[in-house]
Design a protein around this nucleic acid. Structure first.
Lengths: 187, 187
DNA sequence: TGTCGTTTTTATCATTTGTTAAATGATTTC
DNA sequence: GAAATCATTTAACAAATGATAAAAACGACA
């Protein structure tokens, strides 16, 4: 997805303000498997996915637990870094060859203070992330694993073709074996 | 908690901007048991808790499931209404006699467009809500019920004295009976 | 204090999910 | 195309949680 559309989908901006954001954006390519964010590090940039797919995970004991997937158009953000300038707890791994738009947090923070439209764009950006997070939370608390699996496929039909089941199981909060059982029961 | 402190804790504002927000705020009192938000309704206001405690819940089949607690200093927001001007899915019930600060969303939206400092305040407000939501999500996905119970008590020591165990169990994503077992095992 | 209604705990059994191990399938590499 | 590696499924048993019912504890209040 192109950067103009990504920016506009968040909040409509005049072309002047949009150009200010775009002037701070650099396009980058990374291969499948690249680790974009490392846990326990303050991330200095946020990204938008032009092409490809990514996951965020953290460790619980020795297990990687995936808690986020991002696809074309989605932002990649370590919220702890972005909001509080603190170390994040997650790795972000690219699951396909990716084309990304990089935006340095420091530059964005400057724009927030210099341009009130961009401040409102940043507000909307955060608000939309809350909605996503809240939906996911409700899904985890209200639905059982089977319902969550079906809902995920519904929201994201190509996920099965693009991502290993072990990552999906982990995202759903169950073991891969349990997901296998669920899939077997659905047949 | 007083409104000045609540506003400042989110993002520091000049007294001019802060006064603009405060001019739109009305203090209100409601008795224990009052239903502040009703599901399937567009909520026109957000609130801040001066004194008291509240919970948000939604129905799953016939069961109320509590997914949020708010105490002194916390905002009460139906995010679907606040962000998208759409119907919320939750009721909010006051669990004690409450003193609240009411802020009409429409007035706040105006302030966002008129005052860039307030726009940044609104951005920070949203960003802090993301952090809360993300922490809760991680807790639900990474921790078992016992760990979640202990973490909740840790973050919120007075909760046990102020809220029924049935609400806490529901918030933890387990039945009250299961919470009883967990508590018995901890002794 | 004693009763009533509500909240919390305990007990029993069924169901779901986790754990470990092994078998099957799919993909890569030489 | 055979071997090696990785992903997925199946099986058997253990542990955690849910459902239902009943008992115990607690609180409000006459």
């Amino acid at each position: 997805m192109e950067i103009n559309q990504i920016i506009d989908n968040i909040y409509p901006l005049t072309s002047i303000s949009k150009d200010l954001i775009k002037a701070s954006i650099v396009e980058m390519k990374f291969p499948k498997g690249h680790i974009l964010f490392k846990a326990n590090k303050i991330e200095k940039s946020i990204y938008f996915i032009k092409k490809g797919i990514a996951r965020a995970y953290a460790y619980s004991d020795d297990n990687q637990i995936t808690f986020w997937f991002g696809k074309e158009g989605d932002p990649i953000v370590s919220m702890q870094s972005y909001v509080n300038n603190e170390k994040g707890y997650e790795d972000v791994e690219l699951l396909e060859d990716c084309e990304l738009y990089e935006l340095k947090t420091e530059q964005l923070q400057k724009l927030f203070l210099e341009d009130s439209h961009i401040a409102n764009w940043g507000r909307k950006f955060a608000e939309l992330e809350i909605i996503k997070s809240e939906k996911r939370l409700i899904s985890l608390q209200f639905e059982n694993a089977t319902q969550r699996y079906l809902a995920l496929l519904n929201n994201y039909p190509s996920l099965l073709q693009r991502v290993q089941l072990s990552h999906i199981a982990s995202y759903l909060g169950i073991t891969q074996i349990s997901l296998s059982r669920i899939r077997a029961n659905l047949k």
